[in-house]
Design a protein around this nucleic acid. Structure first.
Length: 271
DNA sequence: ATGCCCTCTAAAAGAGGA
């Protein structure tokens, strides 16, 4: 086997991104540009907001990506794209979901890595049934993460967790402004800590231990212009994946474009 | 205190987002 084929099978570096695109149909030109410019090896998408039948697979394949998706008409919806490869689907939805009508989880194997694309419920208003649903969903994710932990392969749990991990301005422009929001509630943060304490590594914060690393800026009230953002898109790594972590970042330039999503793509590199 | 804005679907005096 020549070196080129070896590199294709065992790439020396793998870039894995998560991107809540807020509507894949409205965002398709931005998505294709981003794939061509940033060339992630794997892209986990959330809020594709389209049914399975209307997923724009032709355009994504034309950009050089294979894909699997778990769609839903109008809301939610997740996908996993792989550059020059077909992600091998492992599951759609979490185990034991009492309400499988929400399309919020899809999991695949790509190049020897298990990758999940996660759209955790927002949970507003808190308290209330939507907040209860968020916490219950998070508990099921943590249970499933324990099962993945027991497997052989490195695991990356990537997505929009809808949790601001800490009150620090490193994670949120104003804790006070967000005090009543489901994203900052003690129960939301406790669930996120349970995942961390189970041994999962918050990749972005590991690479950038200090300073703001926002991933979301609201469309309203000039949030982008005044950098009123927060950090809710996370890539959580199993030990085998964390051992290979070499870099992480946020594609802030993508948020500045016309017709941008309110989230920015967030990524890691693994050796 | 509330809404600011955006996308979806339906065709709204709307729902949902974060």
């Amino acid at each position: 086997m020549d070196d080129g084929r070896l590199r294709a099978r065992y790439p020396r570096r793998m870039k894995i991104a998560t991107f809540n695109i807020n509507g894949i149909k409205a965002r398709l030109p931005r998505l294709v540009e981003w794939l061509e410019q940033k060339a992630p090896d794997v892209a986990c998408l959330q809020e594709i907001k389209t049914s399975d039948e209307t997923f724009p697979i032709a355009e994504i394949e034309a950009a050089g990506y294979g894909a699997i998706w778990h769609g839903q008409k109008g809301f939610n919806g997740v996908a996993i794209l792989a550059k020059g490869a077909q992600p091998v689907e492992r599951r759609k939805g979490l185990p034991d979901d009492p309400d499988p009508s929400h399309s919020r989880y899809i999991e695949a194997e790509v190049n020897g890595v298990v990758v999940a694309s996660i759209y955790l419920p927002n949970g507003n208003p808190a308290p209330g049934p939507k907040f209860d649903y968020k916490l219950a969903w998070f508990d099921r994710l943590i249970d499933h993460a324990a099962d993945l932990w027991a497997g052989e392969m490195p695991v990356v749990l990537a997505g929009d967790y809808n949790v601001i991990p800490t009150p620090s301005t490193d994670d949120v422009f104003s804790e006070r402004a967000m005090a009543s929001d489901a994203l900052t509630q003690p129960e939301s943060r406790a669930a996120f800590r349970r995942l961390c304490n189970a041994g999962w590594t918050d990749a972005v914060r590991t690479i950038h231990p200090h300073g703001p690393v926002y991933t979301f800026w609201d469309y309203q009230a000039g949030a982008w212009q005044r950098d009123a953002g927060f950090r809710i898109d996370h890539l959580m790594l199993s030990p085998a994946a964390a051992d290979r972590l070499t870099g992480a970042g946020v594609d802030k330039d993508t948020r500045a474009l016309e017709k941008a999503s309110d989230h920015a793509p967030t990524w890691i590199t693994l050796r």
